[in-house]
Design a protein around this nucleic acid. Sequence first.
DNA 1: CAAGTCCGTAAGGTTAAGCTTACCGTTAGT
DNA 2: ACTAACGGTAAGCTTAACCTTACGGACTTG
Lengths: 99, 99
Amino acid sequence: MNALGDPTRRAIFERLRAGPVAVGELASELPVSRPAVSQHLRVLKEAGLVTDAKAGTRRLYRVNPQGLEGLRAYFERFWDDALAQLKQAAENDDQGGKR
Amino acid sequence: MNALGDPTRRAIFERLRAGPVAVGELASELPVSRPAVSQHLRVLKEAGLVTDAKAGTRRLYRVNPQGLEGLRAYFERFWDDALAQLKQAAENDDQGGKR
DNA sequence: CAAGTCCGTAAGGTTAAGCTTACCGTTAGT
DNA sequence: ACTAACGGTAAGCTTAACCTTACGGACTTG
């Protein structure tokens, strides 16, 4: 989750949405250097959001559907709870808890 | 999205999932000071993830379902694209890779 | 083997994020 | 009106995130 907090990393992630891309190509399309892209990719990889595969001398990165599923489930749960909270607040004006 | 990048902010957000909470109570449950909580709440509010309402001398914060829906939709779209990408990659492999 | 790509890692500098203390406005109760 | 509780804001410091340059390893080709 922290991984998507950085704008550059989100840009990389969104670029990867279209399909596998090599590190150099990513760097050429972004306003940062190639090593910076490598570091961002490492963060994304450790977060389980992307996977990498050697392709000759290059290295292709792509989105990891499993990692995405985790985030989707996270927000889905949150969303359901928020709705339940709203419904309960609408039905009951009761406020418990503190005095 | 940047709003949920910070661990403390995520803790606040998850605490708010159970229902409306006042600023002081949040601070008492977290390892940070009350002003820090206020600042985090401001970020969350500007991101549209929470809403606030005066309640006497206190101020109750709660999760904003609309903001959550935006995030959910974002990942949903990503999820669909990732699946499409996977399917296409599988088809390409079927046709025999190129060299 | 030699040369050329492509990429990851290390080291260092710079900026911004997060936290704390201090101060002030607002609301409620006595 | 006075006091106390609650919370937002300002100023300042500290740490960590991010970027760049420099270097070295892995792989392919002539």
